[in-house]
Computed example of a mutant assay.
Amino acid sequence: MKLLLTGANGFVGQYVQAALPGVPLPNGLDLRDHAALTAAVAAIRPDAVVHLAAQSFVPASFENPRETFDINFYGTLNLLEALQSSGFMGRMLFVGSGDTYGRVPEADLPVREDHPLRPRNPYAVSKVAAEALCYQWSQTSGFEIIMVRPFNHIGPGQSSHFAIADFARQVMEIRMGRRAPVLQVGDIDVTRDFTDVRDVVRAYTLLLEKGQNGGIYNVCSGREYRIRDLLRQLLTLAGVEATVEQDPTRLRPAEQRRMVASFAALQRDTGWQPLIPMEQSLQDLLNDWEKQLQ
């Protein structure tokens, strides 16, 4: 199987490449460039596609919503048209986001795929629109499309733009004597649903093979983790003692105090369940930062 992978250089893309050797788009190719994308897809002639590429930084989507829509919605349309013009007859996996649900009342947790989508930022809006586009194409084009809504990822190689990866970096800097034993944090009394990136990619692999055409699947652990507890676990694993200081610049109004989702649909159709324990994810993250900081 020849797999076309968009977003190959990102955090998740690198894990997809390791699990499913594929052909990335040529370096520097912009999804907004219809002609270049069409030529690249025609040259690759893939049997399957994993579409990860996106503008996924929420603050940037507020600063420039048009650019976010151009990449995430029109970029997806360009890819679909390029696949169609190349005679593609395989399966495509579209990677959306759990952020598309917006604010979910606690009574509705764990969130399931039939929950209304109420996106609250331009990034999430662009993903709702692109997912709807993919559903339409799954029904009217000559190829099949499966859509996923992944929740929070964790694992080695993640950028310190993300809270747990940032805490792991700070903890390791303290252990190596490079920073005072004070951790700078934002709001750590919220809960989130975290899945190890390697489990996420295994879900993508299984869905590409067994997912229903036009099907939409949450990819999540089904477990609710308090950020404060994960921070304590990082400190324990690293053998570090530190005080925790709330940094006002890291505080974002967290409307969603609790979040957990259900992976029942994914399990029903593929047999998938998360396998990597949180302790291993955190230890691997610490080890990765230790290597990077040496």
Rank of each mutant, 00 (worst) to 15 (best):
I164R: 04
Y135V: 08
I154Q: 15
A163W: 09
V148D: 13
N213K: 13
P150E: 12
A180P: 15
G186Q: 05
M172F: 05
S141L: 05
N213W: 00
V219M: 07
D199E: 09
G222S: 07
V182A: 03
Q158V: 01
R178E: 06
K210S: 04
H153I: 02
E144D: 11
T140E: 13
F162K: 12
F151Q: 12
L207Q: 10
R192C: 06
V190C: 07
R232P: 01
W137M: 04
A132T: 08
G155Y: 01
Y225N: 15
L206C: 06
Y135Q: 12
S160N: 15
S159H: 07
I145C: 03
H161D: 15
S138I: 01
C134M: 09
Q139G: 02
Y135D: 09
K127R: 08
F143K: 09
D187N: 13
D193N: 12
L207Y: 08
R226G: 06
R178Q: 14
P181R: 14
A163Q: 14
Q233M: 11
R228K: 14
D187F: 00
W137F: 01
I145E: 03
V197C: 03
G142Q: 11
Q184F: 00
G214A: 01
I154R: 15
V185W: 05
D196A: 10
N152A: 07
Q233K: 15
G155I: 00
F167W: 05
G214W: 02
I154W: 11
R175G: 13
G215P: 03
L133D: 00
R149M: 01
I146K: 15
N218F: 01
R178P: 10
R202H: 04
Y225S: 11
D166M: 08
H161S: 14
R179D: 02
N213V: 04
I154K: 12
I164K: 04
A168D: 08
V148W: 12
R178F: 03
I154F: 08
S138W: 03
E131V: 04
G177E: 03
A163S: 11
V219S: 07
F162A: 02
D196R: 03
E131Y: 02
E224H: 07
R179S: 05
R226N: 14
D187Q: 12
R192N: 13
A129W: 00
M147V: 10
T195F: 06
S141C: 03
G177L: 01
M147R: 15
L231P: 05
S159G: 13
I164T: 08
Q233W: 07
L207G: 09
T191L: 02
E173S: 10
V148H: 10
E209G: 06
H153S: 07
T205F: 04
R226F: 05
Q139I: 00
E173N: 15
D166V: 02
E131P: 06
K210W: 00
K210Y: 02
L133P: 03
V201D: 10
